[in-house]
Nucleic acid binder design. Structure first.
Lengths: 213, 213
DNA sequence: TAGATTGTTAATCGATTAACAATC
DNA sequence: TAGATTGTTAATCGATTAACAATC
Protein backbone atom coordinates (compact mmCIF):
# COMPACT_ATOMS: atom_id res chain seq x y z
CA UNK A 1 0.00 0.00 0.00
CA UNK A 2 1.40 3.33 -1.05
CA UNK A 3 0.09 6.79 -1.64
CA UNK A 4 -0.67 7.91 -5.17
CA UNK A 5 -0.51 11.60 -5.94
CA UNK A 6 -3.46 12.98 -7.82
CA UNK A 7 -2.33 15.25 -10.63
CA UNK A 8 -3.12 18.93 -10.48
CA UNK A 9 -4.94 18.74 -13.80
CA UNK A 10 -7.40 16.27 -12.31
CA UNK A 11 -7.97 18.36 -9.18
CA UNK A 12 -8.67 21.43 -11.27
CA UNK A 13 -11.42 19.57 -13.06
CA UNK A 14 -13.15 18.17 -9.98
CA UNK A 15 -15.08 21.33 -9.04
CA UNK A 16 -16.42 21.56 -12.56
CA UNK A 17 -17.66 17.98 -12.42
CA UNK A 18 -19.25 18.82 -9.10
CA UNK A 19 -21.00 21.82 -10.60
CA UNK A 20 -22.37 19.91 -13.59
CA UNK A 21 -23.58 17.08 -11.40
CA UNK A 22 -25.23 19.60 -9.08
CA UNK A 23 -27.05 21.11 -12.05
CA UNK A 24 -28.19 17.67 -13.20
CA UNK A 25 -29.36 16.90 -9.69
CA UNK A 26 -31.50 20.02 -9.67
CA UNK A 27 -33.08 18.86 -12.89
CA UNK A 28 -33.83 15.52 -11.22
CA UNK A 29 -31.60 13.58 -13.60
CA UNK A 30 -31.02 10.19 -12.00
CA UNK A 31 -28.26 8.64 -14.05
CA UNK A 32 -25.72 9.76 -16.63
CA UNK A 33 -23.10 8.02 -18.73
CA UNK A 34 -19.60 9.34 -19.22
CA UNK A 35 -20.53 9.86 -22.87
CA UNK A 36 -23.56 12.06 -22.13
CA UNK A 37 -21.64 14.03 -19.54
CA UNK A 38 -18.71 14.44 -21.90
CA UNK A 39 -20.99 16.02 -24.49
CA UNK A 40 -22.38 18.51 -21.99
CA UNK A 41 -18.99 19.39 -20.60
CA UNK A 42 -17.11 19.33 -23.89
CA UNK A 43 -14.43 16.96 -22.70
CA UNK A 44 -13.79 13.35 -23.67
CA UNK A 45 -15.68 10.52 -22.01
CA UNK A 46 -12.33 8.84 -21.58
CA UNK A 47 -11.04 11.71 -19.50
CA UNK A 48 -14.06 11.65 -17.24
CA UNK A 49 -13.67 7.94 -16.58
CA UNK A 50 -9.92 8.28 -16.03
CA UNK A 51 -10.40 11.20 -13.67
CA UNK A 52 -13.04 9.48 -11.56
CA UNK A 53 -11.09 6.26 -11.37
CA UNK A 54 -8.33 8.05 -9.54
CA UNK A 55 -10.64 7.93 -6.56
CA UNK A 56 -12.44 4.65 -7.12
CA UNK A 57 -15.13 3.08 -9.23
CA UNK A 58 -18.24 5.20 -8.86
CA UNK A 59 -20.07 3.84 -11.88
CA UNK A 60 -21.65 0.64 -13.02
CA UNK A 61 -21.09 -1.11 -16.33
CA UNK A 62 -24.03 -0.91 -18.66
CA UNK A 63 -25.68 1.75 -16.51
CA UNK A 64 -23.37 4.72 -16.08
CA UNK A 65 -23.21 6.85 -12.97
CA UNK A 66 -25.89 7.64 -10.43
CA UNK A 67 -25.95 11.43 -10.39
CA UNK A 68 -26.78 11.89 -6.74
CA UNK A 69 -24.20 9.38 -5.57
CA UNK A 70 -21.44 10.71 -7.81
CA UNK A 71 -22.20 14.29 -6.80
CA UNK A 72 -22.00 13.33 -3.16
CA UNK A 73 -18.78 11.37 -3.61
CA UNK A 74 -17.04 14.18 -5.46
CA UNK A 75 -18.26 16.52 -2.74
CA UNK A 76 -16.55 14.32 -0.17
CA UNK A 77 -13.37 14.19 -2.21
CA UNK A 78 -13.40 18.00 -2.34
CA UNK A 79 -13.86 18.13 1.41
CA UNK A 80 -17.28 19.75 1.16
CA UNK A 81 -18.61 17.47 3.87
CA UNK A 82 -16.51 19.50 6.32
CA UNK A 83 -17.37 22.84 7.88
CA UNK A 84 -14.75 25.54 7.56
CA UNK A 85 -14.40 28.65 9.66
CA UNK A 86 -13.27 31.52 7.50
CA UNK A 87 -11.98 34.97 8.33
CA UNK A 88 -11.54 37.78 5.85
CA UNK A 89 -8.68 40.19 6.23
CA UNK A 90 -9.23 43.41 4.37
CA UNK A 91 -12.78 44.80 4.48
CA UNK A 92 -12.53 46.78 1.25
CA UNK A 93 -14.81 46.20 -1.70
CA UNK A 94 -13.53 42.75 -2.45
CA UNK A 95 -13.54 41.63 1.18
CA UNK A 96 -17.10 42.86 1.53
CA UNK A 97 -18.11 41.09 -1.67
CA UNK A 98 -16.74 37.83 -0.29
CA UNK A 99 -18.41 38.36 3.08
CA UNK A 100 -21.72 38.91 1.37
CA UNK A 101 -21.45 35.90 -0.90
CA UNK A 102 -24.11 33.79 0.78
CA UNK A 103 -23.55 30.82 -1.51
CA UNK A 104 -20.30 29.89 0.21
CA UNK A 105 -22.20 28.92 3.35
CA UNK A 106 -24.14 26.37 1.38
CA UNK A 107 -20.81 24.63 0.71
CA UNK A 108 -19.74 24.74 4.33
CA UNK A 109 -17.65 27.91 4.45
CA UNK A 110 -18.70 30.20 7.30
CA UNK A 111 -17.39 33.71 7.64
CA UNK A 112 -16.64 34.14 11.33
CA UNK A 113 -14.67 37.36 11.35
CA UNK A 114 -13.67 40.33 9.22
CA UNK A 115 -10.60 42.44 9.94
CA UNK A 116 -9.23 45.73 8.68
CA UNK A 117 -6.83 48.44 9.76
CA UNK A 118 -8.92 51.39 8.61
CA UNK A 119 -10.65 53.28 11.47
CA UNK A 120 -13.42 54.09 9.00
CA UNK A 121 -14.25 50.42 8.61
CA UNK A 122 -13.54 49.07 12.09
CA UNK A 123 -16.80 48.72 13.98
CA UNK A 124 -19.02 48.71 10.89
CA UNK A 125 -21.26 45.73 10.22
CA UNK A 126 -21.02 43.42 7.23
CA UNK A 127 -23.68 40.73 7.09
CA UNK A 128 -23.85 40.37 10.85
CA UNK A 129 -20.09 40.57 11.36
CA UNK A 130 -18.50 43.55 13.05
CA UNK A 131 -15.28 44.58 11.34
CA UNK A 132 -12.51 44.09 13.87
CA UNK A 133 -9.16 45.79 14.16
CA UNK A 134 -6.46 43.73 12.45
CA UNK A 135 -4.33 44.22 15.55
CA UNK A 136 -6.66 41.86 17.35
CA UNK A 137 -5.89 39.05 14.90
CA UNK A 138 -3.30 37.22 16.95
CA UNK A 139 -5.48 37.30 20.03
CA UNK A 140 -8.55 36.26 18.04
CA UNK A 141 -6.73 33.25 16.61
CA UNK A 142 -5.77 32.08 20.10
CA UNK A 143 -9.37 31.65 21.07
CA UNK A 144 -11.07 30.85 17.78
CA UNK A 145 -10.56 27.95 15.43
CA UNK A 146 -10.01 29.34 11.95
CA UNK A 147 -9.46 27.08 8.96
CA UNK A 148 -9.17 29.57 6.14
CA UNK A 149 -8.07 33.19 5.96
CA UNK A 150 -9.08 35.14 2.87
CA UNK A 151 -6.54 37.86 2.18
CA UNK A 152 -7.91 40.93 0.42
CA UNK A 153 -5.34 43.49 1.53
CA UNK A 154 -3.06 45.51 -0.75
CA UNK A 155 -0.17 43.76 -2.45
CA UNK A 156 2.51 45.28 -0.22
CA UNK A 157 0.85 44.14 2.99
CA UNK A 158 0.00 40.61 1.91
CA UNK A 159 3.30 38.73 2.28
CA UNK A 160 3.92 39.99 5.83
CA UNK A 161 0.37 39.33 6.87
CA UNK A 162 0.48 35.83 5.41
CA UNK A 163 3.69 35.08 7.28
CA UNK A 164 2.06 36.22 10.52
CA UNK A 165 -1.03 34.12 9.87
CA UNK A 166 1.15 31.08 9.26
CA UNK A 167 2.99 31.77 12.50
CA UNK A 168 -0.32 32.00 14.31
CA UNK A 169 -1.38 28.60 13.04
CA UNK A 170 -3.51 29.26 9.96
CA UNK A 171 -3.29 26.35 7.52
CA UNK A 172 -5.36 27.60 4.59
CA UNK A 173 -5.02 30.90 2.77
CA UNK A 174 -7.26 32.17 0.00
CA UNK A 175 -5.13 34.89 -1.48
CA UNK A 176 -6.56 37.72 -3.57
CA UNK A 177 -3.52 39.99 -3.37
CA UNK A 178 -1.60 40.17 -6.66
CA UNK A 179 1.53 38.57 -5.27
CA UNK A 180 2.84 35.11 -4.48
CA UNK A 181 3.03 34.07 -0.85
CA UNK A 182 5.99 31.94 0.11
CA UNK A 183 4.96 30.03 3.18
CA UNK A 184 5.93 26.85 4.99
CA UNK A 185 4.64 23.89 3.05
CA UNK A 186 2.12 22.87 5.69
CA UNK A 187 0.24 26.03 4.76
CA UNK A 188 -1.96 25.71 1.69
CA UNK A 189 -2.41 28.74 -0.52
CA UNK A 190 -5.01 29.11 -3.23
CA UNK A 191 -4.57 32.21 -5.34
CA UNK A 192 -7.18 34.28 -7.15
CA UNK A 193 -5.28 36.71 -9.31
CA UNK A 194 -7.91 38.87 -10.95
CA UNK A 195 -5.43 41.05 -12.79
CA UNK A 196 -3.84 37.97 -14.34
CA UNK A 197 -7.21 36.65 -15.38
CA UNK A 198 -7.93 39.95 -17.10
CA UNK A 199 -4.56 39.84 -18.85
CA UNK A 200 -5.36 36.42 -20.22
CA UNK A 201 -8.60 37.80 -21.61
CA UNK A 202 -6.66 40.69 -23.10
CA UNK A 203 -4.22 38.26 -24.68
CA UNK A 204 -6.94 36.21 -26.25
CA UNK A 205 -8.71 39.33 -27.54
CA UNK A 206 -5.59 40.78 -29.05
CA UNK A 207 -5.36 37.66 -31.16
CA UNK A 208 -1.71 36.98 -30.52
CA UNK A 209 -2.34 33.35 -29.75
CA UNK A 210 -1.26 32.75 -33.30
CA UNK A 211 2.26 33.72 -34.18
CA UNK A 212 3.74 34.00 -37.66
CA UNK A 213 6.61 31.70 -38.22
CA UNK B 1 4.96 30.88 -43.26
CA UNK B 2 2.30 29.34 -41.09
CA UNK B 3 0.65 30.11 -37.78
CA UNK B 4 1.86 28.38 -34.66
CA UNK B 5 -0.59 27.96 -31.80
CA UNK B 6 0.75 28.96 -28.43
CA UNK B 7 -0.17 26.39 -25.81
CA UNK B 8 -2.56 27.31 -23.06
CA UNK B 9 0.03 26.40 -20.44
CA UNK B 10 2.36 29.05 -21.80
CA UNK B 11 -0.36 31.71 -21.92
CA UNK B 12 -1.28 31.01 -18.33
CA UNK B 13 2.29 31.71 -17.27
CA UNK B 14 2.72 34.97 -19.16
CA UNK B 15 0.90 37.23 -16.68
CA UNK B 16 3.02 35.84 -13.90
CA UNK B 17 6.22 36.64 -15.80
CA UNK B 18 4.83 40.10 -16.39
CA UNK B 19 4.18 40.57 -12.70
CA UNK B 20 7.65 39.42 -11.63
CA UNK B 21 9.31 41.62 -14.22
CA UNK B 22 7.19 44.55 -13.07
CA UNK B 23 8.35 43.96 -9.51
CA UNK B 24 11.98 43.83 -10.65
CA UNK B 25 11.48 47.01 -12.63
CA UNK B 26 10.20 48.78 -9.53
CA UNK B 27 13.34 47.68 -7.73
CA UNK B 28 15.39 49.15 -10.58
CA UNK B 29 16.85 45.80 -11.58
CA UNK B 30 18.29 46.24 -15.05
CA UNK B 31 19.05 42.73 -16.20
CA UNK B 32 18.18 39.20 -15.17
CA UNK B 33 19.15 35.74 -16.37
CA UNK B 34 16.68 32.92 -16.84
CA UNK B 35 18.46 31.18 -13.97
CA UNK B 36 17.97 34.03 -11.50
CA UNK B 37 14.37 34.51 -12.54
CA UNK B 38 13.73 30.78 -12.29
CA UNK B 39 14.90 30.81 -8.68
CA UNK B 40 12.59 33.67 -7.76
CA UNK B 41 9.62 32.18 -9.55
CA UNK B 42 10.28 28.58 -8.60
CA UNK B 43 10.15 27.25 -12.12
CA UNK B 44 12.96 25.89 -14.29
CA UNK B 45 15.18 28.22 -16.29
CA UNK B 46 14.58 25.95 -19.23
CA UNK B 47 10.86 26.57 -19.07
CA UNK B 48 11.33 30.32 -19.00
CA UNK B 49 13.56 30.23 -22.08
CA UNK B 50 11.21 27.89 -23.90
CA UNK B 51 8.20 30.02 -23.07
CA UNK B 52 9.78 33.27 -24.18
CA UNK B 53 11.09 31.76 -27.38
CA UNK B 54 7.56 31.07 -28.50
CA UNK B 55 7.41 34.78 -29.20
CA UNK B 56 10.96 35.54 -30.23
CA UNK B 57 14.43 35.99 -28.83
CA UNK B 58 14.22 38.64 -26.17
CA UNK B 59 17.53 37.88 -24.51
CA UNK B 60 21.17 38.07 -25.27
CA UNK B 61 23.74 35.32 -24.85
CA UNK B 62 26.14 35.92 -22.02
CA UNK B 63 23.98 38.73 -20.64
CA UNK B 64 20.46 37.54 -19.98
CA UNK B 65 17.37 39.63 -20.40
CA UNK B 66 16.93 43.36 -20.06
CA UNK B 67 14.15 43.68 -17.50
CA UNK B 68 12.51 46.79 -18.89
CA UNK B 69 12.55 45.52 -22.45
CA UNK B 70 11.27 42.06 -21.57
CA UNK B 71 8.54 43.53 -19.37
CA UNK B 72 7.44 45.77 -22.18
CA UNK B 73 7.51 42.99 -24.77
CA UNK B 74 5.45 40.64 -22.63
CA UNK B 75 3.05 43.52 -22.03
CA UNK B 76 2.64 43.84 -25.78
CA UNK B 77 2.12 40.11 -26.18
CA UNK B 78 -0.60 40.30 -23.54
CA UNK B 79 -2.21 43.17 -25.38
CA UNK B 80 -1.61 45.62 -22.55
CA UNK B 81 -0.53 48.29 -25.00
CA UNK B 82 -4.19 48.52 -26.02
CA UNK B 83 -6.94 50.42 -24.24
CA UNK B 84 -10.08 48.45 -23.46
CA UNK B 85 -13.52 49.82 -22.74
CA UNK B 86 -15.18 47.70 -20.09
CA UNK B 87 -18.73 47.55 -18.86
CA UNK B 88 -19.86 45.74 -15.74
CA UNK B 89 -23.21 44.04 -15.67
CA UNK B 90 -24.44 43.39 -12.17
CA UNK B 91 -23.77 46.16 -9.65
CA UNK B 92 -23.83 43.94 -6.58
CA UNK B 93 -20.91 43.59 -4.23
CA UNK B 94 -18.65 41.91 -6.73
CA UNK B 95 -19.53 44.29 -9.55
CA UNK B 96 -18.84 47.22 -7.25
CA UNK B 97 -15.55 45.71 -6.15
CA UNK B 98 -14.46 45.42 -9.77
CA UNK B 99 -15.61 48.95 -10.56
CA UNK B 100 -13.59 50.26 -7.66
CA UNK B 101 -10.46 48.33 -8.53
CA UNK B 102 -8.35 51.27 -9.67
CA UNK B 103 -5.42 49.11 -10.64
CA UNK B 104 -7.12 47.84 -13.76
CA UNK B 105 -6.94 51.30 -15.31
CA UNK B 106 -3.20 51.22 -15.01
CA UNK B 107 -3.24 48.21 -17.34
CA UNK B 108 -5.54 49.87 -19.83
CA UNK B 109 -8.95 48.65 -18.73
CA UNK B 110 -11.43 51.49 -18.34
CA UNK B 111 -14.83 50.98 -16.78
CA UNK B 112 -17.23 52.95 -18.95
CA UNK B 113 -20.57 51.72 -17.72
CA UNK B 114 -22.26 49.75 -14.96
CA UNK B 115 -25.65 48.10 -15.37
CA UNK B 116 -28.16 46.47 -13.07
CA UNK B 117 -31.84 45.60 -12.99
CA UNK B 118 -32.44 46.54 -9.37
CA UNK B 119 -34.31 49.86 -8.93
CA UNK B 120 -32.39 50.29 -5.67
CA UNK B 121 -29.09 50.41 -7.54
CA UNK B 122 -30.08 52.15 -10.77
CA UNK B 123 -29.09 55.79 -10.55
CA UNK B 124 -26.56 55.34 -7.75
CA UNK B 125 -22.97 56.35 -8.32
CA UNK B 126 -19.99 54.00 -8.28
CA UNK B 127 -16.65 55.68 -8.81
CA UNK B 128 -18.05 58.31 -11.08
CA UNK B 129 -20.26 55.92 -13.01
CA UNK B 130 -24.03 56.08 -12.70
CA UNK B 131 -25.57 52.63 -12.54
CA UNK B 132 -27.76 52.26 -15.61
CA UNK B 133 -30.82 50.12 -16.19
CA UNK B 134 -29.82 46.85 -17.88
CA UNK B 135 -32.68 47.39 -20.31
CA UNK B 136 -30.63 50.18 -21.83
CA UNK B 137 -27.80 47.78 -22.69
CA UNK B 138 -28.69 47.14 -26.31
CA UNK B 139 -29.13 50.84 -26.99
CA UNK B 140 -25.91 51.67 -25.14
CA UNK B 141 -23.93 49.18 -27.20
CA UNK B 142 -25.16 50.74 -30.42
CA UNK B 143 -23.52 54.04 -29.59
CA UNK B 144 -20.56 53.01 -27.46
CA UNK B 145 -17.58 50.86 -28.31
CA UNK B 146 -17.25 48.20 -25.64
CA UNK B 147 -14.46 45.62 -25.73
CA UNK B 148 -15.13 43.67 -22.56
CA UNK B 149 -18.26 42.97 -20.53
CA UNK B 150 -17.75 41.74 -16.97
CA UNK B 151 -20.68 39.58 -15.93
CA UNK B 152 -21.44 39.60 -12.21
CA UNK B 153 -25.10 38.63 -12.32
CA UNK B 154 -26.64 35.53 -10.70
CA UNK B 155 -25.98 32.14 -12.26
CA UNK B 156 -29.45 31.78 -13.77
CA UNK B 157 -29.30 35.10 -15.60
CA UNK B 158 -25.78 34.76 -16.97
CA UNK B 159 -26.20 32.47 -20.00
CA UNK B 160 -29.10 34.48 -21.45
CA UNK B 161 -27.32 37.76 -20.83
CA UNK B 162 -24.13 36.48 -22.43
CA UNK B 163 -26.05 35.31 -25.50
CA UNK B 164 -27.59 38.78 -25.80
CA UNK B 165 -24.23 40.49 -25.43
CA UNK B 166 -22.78 38.27 -28.15
CA UNK B 167 -25.72 39.14 -30.38
CA UNK B 168 -25.09 42.82 -29.73
CA UNK B 169 -21.48 42.52 -30.79
CA UNK B 170 -19.47 42.06 -27.60
CA UNK B 171 -16.29 40.06 -28.27
CA UNK B 172 -14.84 39.68 -24.79
CA UNK B 173 -16.57 38.41 -21.67
CA UNK B 174 -15.12 38.28 -18.18
CA UNK B 175 -17.48 35.87 -16.50
CA UNK B 176 -17.90 35.70 -12.71
CA UNK B 177 -21.14 33.74 -12.72
CA UNK B 178 -20.68 30.13 -11.61
CA UNK B 179 -21.70 28.65 -14.95
CA UNK B 180 -20.18 28.00 -18.35
CA UNK B 181 -21.19 30.25 -21.21
CA UNK B 182 -21.53 28.61 -24.58
CA UNK B 183 -21.05 31.31 -27.16
CA UNK B 184 -20.01 31.60 -30.80
CA UNK B 185 -16.31 31.04 -31.07
CA UNK B 186 -15.56 34.62 -32.10
CA UNK B 187 -16.51 35.60 -28.55
CA UNK B 188 -13.76 35.11 -25.99
CA UNK B 189 -14.74 34.14 -22.47
CA UNK B 190 -12.46 34.25 -19.45
CA UNK B 191 -13.98 32.69 -16.35
CA UNK B 192 -13.37 33.52 -12.71
CA UNK B 193 -15.08 30.82 -10.72
CA UNK B 194 -14.63 31.78 -7.08
CA UNK B 195 -16.60 28.85 -5.72
CA UNK B 196 -14.39 26.44 -7.67
CA UNK B 197 -11.27 28.13 -6.37
CA UNK B 198 -12.55 27.71 -2.83
CA UNK B 199 -13.31 24.05 -3.48
CA UNK B 200 -9.75 23.50 -4.63
CA UNK B 201 -8.53 25.02 -1.39
CA UNK B 202 -10.90 22.77 0.50
CA UNK B 203 -9.59 19.75 -1.38
CA UNK B 204 -6.00 20.59 -0.58
CA UNK B 205 -6.82 21.23 3.08
CA UNK B 206 -8.73 18.00 3.47
CA UNK B 207 -5.57 16.18 2.47
CA UNK B 208 -7.18 13.93 -0.08
CA UNK B 209 -4.55 14.68 -2.65
CA UNK B 210 -3.01 11.44 -1.55
CA UNK B 211 -5.03 8.32 -2.05
CA UNK B 212 -4.37 4.91 -0.57
CA UNK B 213 -3.79 2.22 -3.13
C1' DT C 1 39.68 35.96 -25.59
C1' DA C 2 37.18 33.51 -21.77
C1' DG C 3 32.94 33.25 -19.39
C1' DA C 4 28.25 33.47 -19.31
C1' DT C 5 23.90 32.62 -20.92
C1' DT C 6 20.81 32.34 -24.56
C1' DG C 7 18.18 29.84 -28.27
C1' DT C 8 17.09 25.45 -29.72
C1' DT C 9 17.27 20.48 -30.37
C1' DA C 10 16.79 16.07 -28.23
C1' DA C 11 15.25 13.23 -24.29
C1' DT C 12 12.09 12.54 -20.75
C1' DC C 13 8.11 12.79 -18.43
C1' DG C 14 3.20 13.19 -17.76
C1' DA C 15 -1.41 13.73 -19.39
C1' DT C 16 -4.91 12.63 -22.71
C1' DT C 17 -7.16 9.65 -25.80
C1' DA C 18 -8.25 5.21 -27.79
C1' DA C 19 -9.38 0.61 -27.33
C1' DC C 20 -11.37 -3.27 -25.34
C1' DA C 21 -12.14 -6.90 -21.93
C1' DA C 22 -14.93 -7.13 -17.84
C1' DT C 23 -19.40 -6.94 -16.14
C1' DC C 24 -23.77 -5.00 -14.95
C1' DT D 1 -29.06 -13.34 -22.99
C1' DA D 2 -27.80 -9.02 -25.64
C1' DG D 3 -26.64 -4.32 -25.16
C1' DA D 4 -24.55 -0.80 -22.84
C1' DT D 5 -21.05 1.25 -20.46
C1' DT D 6 -17.60 1.06 -17.09
C1' DG D 7 -12.73 0.32 -15.45
C1' DT D 8 -8.29 -0.11 -17.08
C1' DT D 9 -4.43 -1.00 -20.14
C1' DA D 10 -1.94 0.53 -24.13
C1' DA D 11 -0.95 4.12 -27.57
C1' DT D 12 -0.55 8.78 -28.59
C1' DC D 13 0.16 13.29 -27.89
C1' DG D 14 1.98 17.37 -25.72
C1' DA D 15 4.60 19.71 -22.29
C1' DT D 16 8.68 19.97 -19.47
C1' DT D 17 13.43 19.33 -18.66
C1' DA D 18 18.15 18.50 -20.03
C1' DA D 19 21.90 19.35 -22.87
C1' DC D 20 24.78 21.92 -25.68
C1' DA D 21 26.21 24.56 -29.74
C1' DA D 22 25.87 29.38 -30.92
C1' DT D 23 27.12 33.80 -29.68
C1' DC D 24 27.28 37.97 -27.01
Amino acid sequence: MYKKEISKAVINRLPRYYRYLGDLLEKDVVRISSKELSEKMKVTASQIRQDLNNFGGFGQQGYGYNVEYLHSEIGKILGLDTKYNVIIIGAGNLGQALANYVDFERRGFFVKGIFDISPKLIGTQIRGNVVRNSEELEEYLKTNKVDIAAITVPKTKAPGLAADLAKWGIKGIWNFAPTDLNLPKDVTVENVHLAESLMKLSYKLSGKDEVNI
